[in-house]
């Protein structure tokens, strides 16, 4: 067993898979020589050579677009965008080509590619370094969207993403990159894409979260359960395709539902989850399904960011409201 933090687990997943599969190439801005600005690809160029792990020029559209070409022609690119807020020049390639190539060519050409990017607020960063953009990908047919919340899941999901036959957007909660360590198997293993994880069973309320928010929810639950409530906590892990069954089964048992996300409220992932609950477990509900989300504003710079972030108190208050409804 290794003991790794989340970013080390990602590096380890890339390392293990590159060792097993010669067709994997890893690239992006500062990814090769330096090992990435967060050091996610540290040591890979040294171990596997410049042909397999390299720096690109500063151009996100080229990183994604050339990755698509490589994927069509037999390679498995794992590319890094430095921050999710910088993905927009590449978004054109993601939406108009990566997501569509299989359909456009009726299966003759495919894009087995992983697009990694750190995302999320709470790191007191400059503009465009804090966004939660999962719905911009989850809304697009042809893309899969994955967000790990632990080192163990990060490695297993990364390996699953690399082995997946379709493009996978791999969003990394940078706020918890180095927050804690966990035992991680040395060898390869897969955590299936599309499968949520019940972190904790309970009977009174179902709470769904993902990414960095998982730990905040755990903290809030620990406080509330002292009042005698029993809460079921689910880590969604894959945003798309979404694990409807696990959520619906849980709500049928608990009768109450709350989704907690860092992304802005309107048209956010919570809207989809609540719809799933309404469609699948409406008659079991004892309280209106609820979302806890960030307000619909631009993520503020550090001196105003505390107004924006969903915090433990908000989560606790809202969960109590739903429990006492």
């Amino acid at each position: 067993m290794l003991v790794l933090n989340l970013i080390e687990a990602i590096t380890d997943a890339l390392d293990v898979e590159m060792g097993l599969d010669d067709s994997i190439v890893v690239f992006g801005e500062d990814v090769g020589f330096e090992g990435g600005v967060f050091r996610a690809t540290k040591g890979l160029q040294k171990k596997y050579g410049e042909k397999r792990c390299f720096d690109t020029v500063l151009a996100e559209a080229s990183i994604i677009g050339s990755g698509i070409g490589m994927a069509i022609n037999g390679l498995k690119p794992v590319v890094e965008l430095q921050f999710s807020g910088f993905m927009f020049p590449g978004y054109n390639q993601i939406v108009t080509h990566a997501a569509r190539m299989r359909n456009r060519s009726r299966g003759a050409y495919t894009v087995p590619m992983v697009i990694r990017m750190p995302y999320g607020a709470g790191v007191r960063a400059l503009e465009h370094h804090s966004e939660s953009l999962e719905v911009l990908f989850a809304h697009i047919a042809g893309l899969k969207v994955v967000i790990p919340s632990t080192p163990y899941d990060a490695k297993g999901l990364m390996i699953a993403a690399i082995r997946d036959p379709d493009p996978v957007i791999f969003l990394e909660p940078k706020r918890i990159y180095r927050a804690f360590k966990q035992e991680v198997p040395e060898d390869d293993y897969v955590i299936p894409i599309g499968k949520a994880k019940i972190l904790k069973e309970g009977n009174d309320l179902t709470v769904v979260s993902w990414g960095a928010m998982v730990r905040d929810v755990q903290n809030a639950i620990a406080i509330i359960e002292k009042e005698g409530f029993s809460i079921e906590h689910i880590d969604l892990r894959t945003i798309s395709p979404i694990d409807r069954e696990t959520i619906i089964e849980s709500v049928k048992k608990t009768g109450r539902f709350v989704v907690v996300h860092e992304a802005a409220q309107s048209f956010g992932p919570g809207a989809e989850l609540i719809t799933i609950v309404n469609e699948g477990a409406f008659l079991y509900l004892e309280a209106p399904p609820t979302r806890i989300a960030s307000p619909d504003i631009i993520v503020p710079l550090p001196k105003g960011e505390h107004h924006y972030l969903v915090n433990k108190n908000t989560i606790k208050d809202e969960l109590e409201k739903v429990l006492k409804y």
Partner: peptide, 9 residues
């Protein structure tokens, strides 16, 4: 000090 709540909205 900090940015006000008014300001971020």
């Amino acid at each position: 000090g900090f940015v006000s709540l008014e300001d971020v909205f």
